[in-house]
Design a protein around this nucleic acid. Sequence first.
DNA 1: CTAATTCGGACTGATTCGTTCCGATTTGCA
DNA 2: TGCAAATCGGAACGAATCAGTCCGAATTAG
Lengths: 141, 141
Amino acid sequence: MRLSNLADYAVVTMTAAARHCGGGRVSAAELAQEIQLPAPTVQKVVSKLTAAGLLRSVRGAKGGLQLARPAAAITLADIVEAIEGPIALTACVDSGAHDCGLEQNCAVRPHWPIVNQALRGALADIRLTQLAQTDNQRELA
Amino acid sequence: MRLSNLADYAVVTMTAAARHCGGGRVSAAELAQEIQLPAPTVQKVVSKLTAAGLLRSVRGAKGGLQLARPAAAITLADIVEAIEGPIALTACVDSGAHDCGLEQNCAVRPHWPIVNQALRGALADIRLTQLAQTDNQRELA
DNA sequence: CTAATTCGGACTGATTCGTTCCGATTTGCA
DNA sequence: TGCAAATCGGAACGAATCAGTCCGAATTAG
């Protein structure tokens, strides 16, 4: 029931990237220094994020990262799914999950999609703009 | 973002135990045969369940398991917490989590409790009686 | 064309999860 | 009262996934 650390780091990384949205391209090392995390770890995170289509990467000298979409169009669900795959509490809710052994005889299976939808809805309600906004409020305090 | 298999098995086991509520005591091996799972695995599950106070165990000959509380007073959240500990997506929401390194500087931390509460509420809304009820409906079909 | 800087994927170590087994305890019956 | 059967409880083993680290390929500025 714990979120993986990589996904947690991804959220922080995306928040930091949104902060540098107007500044154009930002290197992964710079983000790592800003959020106080190991640089190689951040590199691994941004790799998965770009593969998922949330970040746009530019290689070569003066390269860097930038958001592929507006911050308002990115939610927590997108970031978590980019790192950990589809949101599925159990194997049953996954498409074509035939490794449970119970399958049709399982009594609780019809109830899992409800919980799954509730969780995904809670994650989809939080947008990246809200995270950056909170950060600004903290700086004002 | 995946629920552990042990927790999934625990839910099925509790549902099966609720089915035998009127029959008094039921052995763990009998439950294992009923839900088509390895007997030792079920033993480990029921051990944690009894330690959490959800099941009452009676040792010795003619011993077995039975629900410690009415089925209506047991929710999915109770079962999951019994196996996987407190519901905490990130280390921040856990009480006294001082191993993040960011702590006060984290911008997303204030938002996690909201998602956490949404998830826990979704789990707490499903009671054990509903699971058994669904099972009966399936048998009628 | 050179060189500097960057991302991208592959490798190693560690922690946790899942499974299995054997011992301690308790009750029922002779 | 003693024996014996059956049960739960905890401890040990193996496997899988995760976190972290490193080096190579690609690209662009000068």
